[in-house]
């Protein structure tokens, strides 16, 4: 199926862009008329994905974060968040709730939040090459009254 609309973002991995990224994606997906809860879930998942790029992917450096967002007729949204950073050695371990390689202030809940707040989560990673997270959600259909 072809998307009815799409957008692409690229920005440097500075933490001030976390708010920008989630606001930009939520403004874009708002045209599918999601509920406030659905919008909030999406915003939170995007924030987690982008934070992972900054804290893990580009741990000791500043790199580019790419977001591709596609909207489909049935209310489905597909958001791809990608970095060309260090990648994840052990994906299974990284996706376990409460595990964090960053320690200290990180709760280790990023993937758990993405998983529970979206319908689908896919993660592809290659050490030394980067990580791609694909988030999917289908917004519930709403009854529209015209005029």
């Amino acid at each position: 199926m072809k998307p009815i609309n799409e957008m692409h973002l690229r920005f440097p991995s500075v933490s001030a862009n976390e708010a920008f990224a989630r606001a930009a994606v939520s403004t874009f997906v708002a045209q599918l008329d999601p509920t406030l809860d659905e919008l909030c879930d999406t915003k939170t998942a995007v924030s987690e994905a982008v934070t992972n790029c900054i804290v893990h992917g580009y741990r000791d450096t500043i790199g580019t974060i790419y977001i591709d967002c596609a909207l489909y007729e049935n209310g489905r949204v597909v958001i791809r968040v990608r970095d060309r950073g260090c990648g994840i050695e052990n994906l299974k371990q990284a996706m376990e709730p409460l595990y964090s390689s960053a320690g200290g202030e990180r709760a280790g809940l990023g993937f758990a939040v993405m998983q529970s707040f979206m319908d689908k989560l896919r993660v592809q990673s290659r050490p030394g090459q980067g990580t791609t997270v694909v988030l999917e959600k289908t917004f519930s259909p709403r009854v529209h009254t015209n005029g």
Partner: peptide, 8 residues
């Protein structure tokens, strides 16, 4: 708004 950074 709060993501898991708030939990941390």
């Amino acid at each position: 708004f709060m993501d898991s950074s708030g939990i941390g």
